[in-house]
Nucleic acid binder design. Structure first.
Lengths: 203, 203, 203, 203
DNA sequence: TATGAATGAGTTTTCATTCAT
DNA sequence: AATGAATGAAAACTCATTCAT
């Protein structure tokens, strides 16, 4: 039986399946056939859309990072928010799993797996950090932040937030999670030279 | 030709080859045959010493982490040093690449590769962090550090130092490297509540 | 976008692309998709015009051999030429690459590739040889050739000329090419019992 | 069931099967699995001995050409024979299918298939022709041959003999075969400037 | 006539592991 | 302790061809 679909739809179907499997089992332990079986198409269909297994991985990562970027950019570009509010917004989003953009938070689960891929790391450093840097600079202009090395410090903060996302979220014990998040927030405040308690962790 | 060696020596030979290849090409892209070829033994010999490819990976990681731990423990257990000196010592070691214990620094190159393995991450959190925590607590006792959540903050500091090792070391531009290291040191100082400038970065 | 063309034109377009690719990469290493891509049509269009990849190969060979035959026949049927002149004409054409019929010589490049196909070999033996045989017989009648076994000798001569086309043409060194051609001409003269020097090689 | 054999034996087994299949069905239409099935080993065994399908083809061709060369060299190096006798010997061998070296003639069946491979053609030109050239030169010294361009003429003679092997042998009709062979012998005589009838075709 | 997404059987190749010696 | 030939399941990928539109 031959089921023809809109190419974009089919491609996304394949990427969805791949994404899910990569997250569940990891890239190396996912075979092209696994993806194919999951979607229920023929072997050739996969290779009609993607040149190789590597190709679909990159496509999946790129799609993911684009969504990630879109989210951060949405906050950064919001003219009505103060730097502190923006920071608060990003942290809230990541930690509280309340979705500003729908379905964003579920992509965060990918993070831990993809974090291992250079492509993703490079992206974080080259795209997300500069965006966050703009918030930091706004904060400095607003007089609420006081940072000596904004670029470098921002990179480290992004790293810490990243860690929060991938590690803290997995902690079962609510109290422990709260304490970890608080400690992280405190560290970020210090890094930014922001007033103590200006960043609030809400669970 | 059949070359018989001391079992321990043979095992280490295999682990050395494996370690090198895992670092160069990554675990998944290293075949058992690659290791075997490098050492120059027969296929069967490998499986005489190790149950599987996975087995040798764990052995390599364990050997590595033991050396890592040994180094940190050596500093932590030094009764003649202040907490600040100990921190300074660890950072110096990692950044300056001067070897306290011979050949330790070259193992650090493994770090980036192994960082992707849960086993290694778990080890860092369960073994290294507690050791560093002892320094932090010593510092608090000495009145030089002021930390609200010592456990959690230590974990984040270990993460930052870790990052320094794997990322800063690769930066070619000396100035950039210095600035990154300085920013990290400043952040660690703030995290520890240590006096500004108490941690010095020397390259 | 759907571009409709005269069926004959489209078919030739496909054959032209196929011919070129077969010559460049060989039949087995040319995929139907290669041809399709080159022409810029859809997968289905190819199969609308040709039943299979094999089908287009035969079509290409047949078209080629028809042109080849046409050329030889043109010379054979020329009543105003002596057998020697005809032989000279064929050799000149092949070696000098001057075109009697326009664009013929470029088809000769196909020769080497097609020579490997039975279909082409059979054609040479069944069609070209008989035509050349007529020249040989004309020469015998004219008293200028002296051949004991005309059929068999003609086949061998055709083989030699064939070889000249495909091999000598590729030799870069002008002198070497000249010598090879001269040796071949001398051998053909001897085979035909023609006077020494009656066949002239001009480059 | 695991049957271990002497590596050389196993390798030859694989080459024998490959050779046979390549001759029967052609290289492109023979799959590695065909060879494997024929020998009755595991998929991996094939790749233990040969890097690829291409690799075994080259190995088979090389083995074949070595046997070919060995045969020709055996005749060329025979000090007790005149040039004419050597030529006669080679032709006899090829045409009469009587084996000087046992089992040589059966390899000749490969010829037609391999003739299509550059590797084989190159070999014929670079190895066999020079050997035959030595006979031609010997004949010139002996005063029995008279050739103007020995190198080039030899190449053409080798080509003709080659053709005899691959084509004449297949002709069913005894008489036709005889005539073709005779015509070829006559042409060779003329090419060599040898006395008429000095080369005898025996069937 | 023409499209191009979809097919699926088949191909080459890899490699962790086993086992008879 | 050591060998290395042999295994075989599974992987990635190809491509001639089909078919619904």
């Amino acid at each position: 039986m031959r089921i023809t679909k809109d190419p974009e739809e089919r491609k996304n179907e394949l990427m969805d399946a791949a994404e899910q499997l990569f997250v569940e089992k990891g890239y190396e332990h996912t075979s092209a056939s696994d993806i194919i079986r999951k979607v229920g198409v023929a072997q050739g269909t996969f290779y009609y859309y993607f040149e190789s297994k590597d190709d679909i991985l990159n496509a999946v990562i790129d799609r993911y990072t684009m969504r990630y970027e879109e989210f951060v950019r949405g906050i950064v570009d919001d003219d009505g928010m103060s730097a502190l509010q923006k920071f608060q917004g990003i942290i809230d989003e990541f930690l509280s799993m309340k979705n500003r953009k729908k379905q964003f938070s579920e992509y965060l689960n990918l993070e831990e797996k993809f974090a291992r891929h250079e492509r993703f790391r490079d992206y974080m450093e080259s795209t997300v950090s500069p965006l966050v840097l703009r918030i930091v600079k706004q904060g400095i202009r607003e007089g609420i932040f006081d940072v000596e090395h904004p670029e470098e410090t921002t990179e480290l903060i992004v790293l810490i937030v990243d860690r929060l996302i991938t590690r803290v979220r997995k902690i079962e014990d609510k109290k422990k999670r709260r304490v970890k998040a608080k400690a992280a927030a405190a560290l970020i405040e210090k890094a930014l030279g922001a007033p103590k308690g200006s960043l609030r962790i809400k669970f």
